[in-house]
Design a protein around this nucleic acid. Structure first.
Length: 557
DNA sequence: CTTGAAATAT
DNA sequence: TATATTTCAA
């Protein structure tokens, strides 16, 4: 969401009056939930019987904003029916049991969330989000009557929040999937939507664009290509998560003093929208003296993540180019390499292909170096033996050995390109070096390089709430077990050094690979939920026909 | 001038 | 430690 904590402050009692349909056969549970919800000023309508609930919604759907429906082994069939009938109503499923199949069915049938019992205050407090989400997501069309006013009120609230007119045009009530709202905080927004940061020196104010947590795969980077490396000019490029915020600071440089050290760092203050007004302000509006300007584009970090450890390059006397190889950047990089063919992939060409301004050939060379090193580390030793690198001599040809020219898009390449291991700084488990060759149709969605330690992602690459021991999707770990069989066949235990490793590690690798290669067929009908294909697939199979495998403790129904 | 790799810095 | 930048030899 775009809404920052600040935005939400004004909403404090927002959910007040939201009407919640509660369907729970367990009386004590129902009353407990009801009590909690009412304490939060939701209006709760409790039903023990799903037919009553169905009647209620069919009579007047618009009376409810959100539903909480308990599901158990015994009543799942009916609950599915309810879900199906209540498509217009954001429905949260809740249960005592952790059954992946059931969860999936619920979600596939349109449930907005699956919460494990007990429903804590924390879980309940924000259920309004689903109502709002639905309100915006449904766009104009299927928006139920009850949600329209909700939507309007939210819009107006945000409006007020933004206040000072200018930005109002940027409160697009988008019907698109992603962030419904975006806040542009820039003075001249004539720059198209696509290019947030026209690097005119005139900009005295930063351009900030707040994006929500998930990185939609935009790749519009617009960074000024500096006119050349002039001394005294400092530049940093920091492309992060979604592209999105750019900050241009104009610093005055009186004269090109030799040792000038221009260091710019992101303000340490984390908290979302805080603006680091200070020093950049003084700069005169005029563009005249743009002696040293720095362009910085950075995504908004998740509030917890930045502790002001912004990378600052210390400065020599030359440009300082800070490149943060974000997922998007890296993706572009890989795509470029892929396009060129590995043997043709030299920094200059990659640079051309990437068309990311602000990147230098050096940056790419460096990244390429790392990329190759990783690959090489991974490549089966055979290859090394067959194409030993001539040490002193032609270093250039080393990487052009046939394996690099591997035919694109062939699955067998799989084992050759495992994940670029997670490193300490990126614990999320999804960072990887993409294979140089993989089906491009999946590229965009399967790329997850999560530079933010605080943000976790699950095996499917969906952002996931960090650790709560019993989060909404508790079964994922079990789930990964499902990969093993499939991997054992496909994984094929290459000629690598894995042989000697204990099975555990092998399995670990396999799991990682399965996780990091979502485009490959997964065994149990699991596909990234992020794609519709999953849902359709599920609905094709799981719903009307038969639920997939059995996960322990799971009742088929 | 470009590249790859090593050295170095953060 | 890992990654990004800088230096350097070819």
């Amino acid at each position: 969401m775009v809404c920052t904590a600040n935005d939400l402050l004004g909403w404090k009692d927002f959910p007040k009056g939201l009407r919640v349909l509660l369907l729970d056969e367990d009386n004590s549970s129902a009353s407990e939930i009801r009590t909690k919800l009412e304490a939060m000023e939701y209006i709760v309508f409790t039903f023990c019987d799903e037919n009553e609930a169905l009647t209620a919604i069919s009579n007047k759907t618009e009376n409810f904003h959100v539903a909480i429906v308990e599901v158990s082994t015994g009543n799942s069939r009916g609950r599915f029916k309810f879900l199906d009938a209540a498509k217009d109503l954001p429905t949260i499923m809740t249960s005592n049991m952790q059954c992946l199949t059931t969860m999936m069915k619920c979600i596939a049938l349109g449930a907005v969330e699956f919460l494990l019992k007990p429903l804590s205050d924390d879980k309940l407090r924000n259920i309004w989000q689903h109502a709002v989400h639905k309100a915006f997501n449904a766009g104009g069309k299927n928006l139920s009557e009850s949600l329209k006013p909700l939507k309007e009120s939210v819009v107006s609230m945000l409006h007020l929040q933004l206040g000072n007119g200018e930005a109002e045009s940027s409160i697009p009530v988008k019907t698109e999937n992603e962030t419904p709202l975006e806040e542009y905080d820039q003075e001249h927004s004539e720059g198209s939507d696509k290019y947030p940061a026209p690097p005119t020196p005139q900009l005295k104010q930063g351009v900030r664009l707040v994006a929500d947590g998930d990185c939609h795969g935009q790749t519009n980077f617009t960074l000024e290509k500096d006119g050349g490396d002039q001394e005294g000019e400092s530049k940093s490029v920091d492309l992060t998560c979604g592209v999105l915020s750019a900050e241009i600071a104009v610093q005055e440089s009186h004269d090109q003093v030799s040792g000038e050290t221009v260091i710019k760092e992101k303000d340490e203050a984390s908290g979302g929208c805080k603006s680091d007004g200070h020093m950049n302000e003084h700069g005169p509006r005029d563009s005249a003296g743009d002696g040293g300007n720095s362009v910085k584009a950075s995504g908004i970090h998740h509030s917890n993540a930045n502790k002001g450890s912004r990378k600052k390059t210390k400065v020599g006397k030359y440009e300082l180019a800070l490149v943060d190889w974000t997922p998007e950047l890296h993706k572009m990089f890989v795509q470029a390499v892929e396009k060129l063919g590995v043997d043709q992939a030299v920094p200059s060409r990659i640079l051309d292909l990437m068309k990311v301004q602000g990147l230098t050939r050096h940056n790419i060379a460096s990244h390429l170096q790392k990329y190759r090193m990783q690959r090489r580390h991974i490549l089966p030793k055979e290859d090394d033996r067959r194409w030993p690198h001539p040490r002193g001599s032609s270093q250039r040809s080393y990487y052009q050995k046939p394996v690099m020219a591997f035919p694109p898009y062939t699955v067998p390449a799989r084992h050759l390109y495992p994940a670029w291991g997670n490193t300490g700084s990126y614990p999320s488990g999804v960072q990887m070096w993409g294979p140089a060759f993989y089906p491009p149709w999946r590229v965009t969605e399967s790329w997850h390089w999560n530079p933010y330690p605080g943000v976790h992602a699950d095996a499917w690459g969906c952002p996931m709430v960090p650790p709560p021991a019993h989060g909404p999707y508790p079964s994922f770990t079990q789930n990964t077990n499902g990969f093993h069989d499939a991997n054992r066949t496909q994984y094929g235990m290459p000629q690598s050094s894995f042989d000697l490793h204990p099975a555990e590690e092998v399995i670990d690798k396999a799991v990682k690979e399965a996780i990091s290669k979502p485009w490959l067929p997964l065994p149990i009908g699991l596909n990234p939920p992020s794609t519709d294909s999953v849902l359709t697939e599920l609905s094709k199979q799981g719903i009307s026909t038969v639920p997939p495998p059995h996960i322990n403790g799971c009742h088929p129904h």
